[in-house]
Design a protein around this nucleic acid. Structure first.
Ligand SMILES: NC(=O)c1ccc[n+]([C@@H]2O[C@H](COP(=O)([O-])OP(=O)(O)OC[C@H]3O[C@@H](n4cnc5c(N)ncnc54)[C@H](O)[C@@H]3O)[C@@H](O)[C@H]2O)c1
Ligand SMILES: NC(=O)c1ccc[n+]([C@@H]2O[C@H](COP(=O)([O-])OP(=O)(O)OC[C@H]3O[C@@H](n4cnc5c(N)ncnc54)[C@H](O)[C@@H]3O)[C@@H](O)[C@H]2O)c1
Lengths: 207, 207
DNA sequence: GATGTAATGTTATATTAATAACAATGTTTA
DNA sequence: TAAACATTGTTATTAATATAACATTACATC
């Protein structure tokens, strides 16, 4: 009953692009226009619209404002989702800083570390807590998503700990593959692998 | 003729895991052992082995050292591939710093920016050049892959510029979707989209 | 009002990837 | 040596995703 993963990804991208269009004063957009802005195809756009049950003004294209709202209905929760960053090193700091200032329904409300130098301080605009306080703060701050940017050798233990504290989703930037229970939605991004894949296809000159 | 993308990704992960195994003194590994370390299945491992044409010691498992080398044959080039980071902000610095110290066949040999404060200095251990010098340095330093971490509003122009200078692969961390000619292998990772996807599946409680 | 057209919504097909099925092979043990 | 077993390599099936095909709609124009 839920949308395909790839469609959800595209909806997120559609929305961001549509917000730009709205700011430029556009009120409607054709499937092929949106497709061109995102380097995919008009058919794909229309198919995604169909899957989410959104229907156009016949012959006028899709109403941008309404579409943005419809995507929001699917992706956002009314109060927003609170996010924690675990491990405030170089990457964790970059991510935390990046999200500050972006007003969205995803708010980084806390960071966690074990380095006493960092605990208690504001890091990239967000308070850093001891990881020991995580279970308590999950409840207090209504945290539902954790971004994992700790050293890879600790990733598994920390992920298990975090998951057992009631988190619903994890974004793992560590190179250590995780194994989560089914009630925790896990998304992994392995930067090294991603680059090595590029290397492979560059080497085997796919073009 | 070339391997499926997903297989290439897994090969990279296999190799990293296998290196750990080798360090622990293991010489052979069964498909189900490797699978368990990576939370995928033995069948998937064997199928990948088949696709890359690697064959086991019957009943003894796969020879780890040889397998690592075989994966290297596919992914690495003998001299290694040189990489540039374009846009040395928070994310670019984190990535550059991360790759320093990792000895691998992927070397970040230069960074580029337009901020005069940064140009000419060492940033995260690598010299920062003016983007204007990029076409020249691509040749001098044999750069074949660019990591794009510039502000999204400039991403398209810079990507076009970089591609026209002879780069073979681009890793785009910008939220701006790119459109590259077929001889440039493009990999995009959109962190916002990735998180919004988690939000969607958390909200729709897939577990 | 018929005709052409530009766009949509939906069904059908093709591609890609994951999973399952299973025969073949070597190993151990009786 | 035969039977039981563990493990592999490969082929077959299923699932997920993207692409294509096409009938339908609304409107413009003659
Ligand atoms: N920096 C990058 O661009 C990059 C690229 C690819 C992968 N990664 C991965 O991201 C992770 C973080 O990378 P980084 O460069 O930020 O590393 P880092 O060393 O700068 O940061 C790690 C942080 O985690 C903290 N930490 C250590 N143990 C902890 C624990 N038990 N609980 C909570 N916090 C703990 C450390 O105090 C430190 O602040 C690593 O797993 C790395 O493999 C990073
Ligand atoms: N920081 C993150 O964790 C994060 C997360 C998601 C996406 N991103 C994306 O990554 C990109 C970089 O993010 P950041 O947080 O590092 O931003 P940042 O502002 O810290 O860094 C941007 C850098 O690009 C340089 N720059 C600007 N114009 C340039 C040009 N024309 N040529 C070369 N360099 C130029 C700036 O001088 C600066 O050093 C952005 O597109 C952002 O959307 C970052």
């Amino acid at each position: 009953m839920s949308l395909p993963e790839k469609t959800v990804e595209r909806l997120s991208e559609y929305r961001r692009t549509l917000l730009d269009c709205l700011n430029q004063g556009k009120s409607h957009i054709f499937s092929h226009e949106l497709a061109a802005l995102l380097h995919n195809t008009a058919v794909q756009v229309r198919r995604d619209m169909m899957l989410m049950g959104f229907t156009s003004m016949q012959r006028k294209g899709y109403a941008i404002k309404e579409l943005i709202e419809a995507i929001g209905e699917l992706i956002d929760t009314s109060e927003g989702l609170n996010v924690a960053v675990i491990g405030v090193g170089n990457l964790g700091r970059a991510i935390t800083g990046y999200f500050q200032g972006k007003r969205s329904k995803l708010n980084i409300v806390a960071t966690f570390d074990i380095d006493p130098e960092k605990i208690g301080r504001m890091i990239a605009g967000v308070k850093c807590y001891s990881l020991d306080d995580f279970p308590k703060l999950v409840g207090d701050l209504q945290i539902s998503i954790a971004i994992l940017t700790v050293p890879p050798e600790h990733a598994r233990n920390i992920a298990d700990f975090v998951a057992s504290s009631g988190i619903k989703g994890i974004q793992n930037f560590t190179t250590a593959p995780l194994n989560m229970p089914p009630h925790v939605y896990l998304e992994e991004y392995d930067m090294i692998t991603s680059l090595e894949k590029i290397a492979y296809f560059v080497k085997n000159h796919q073009g």
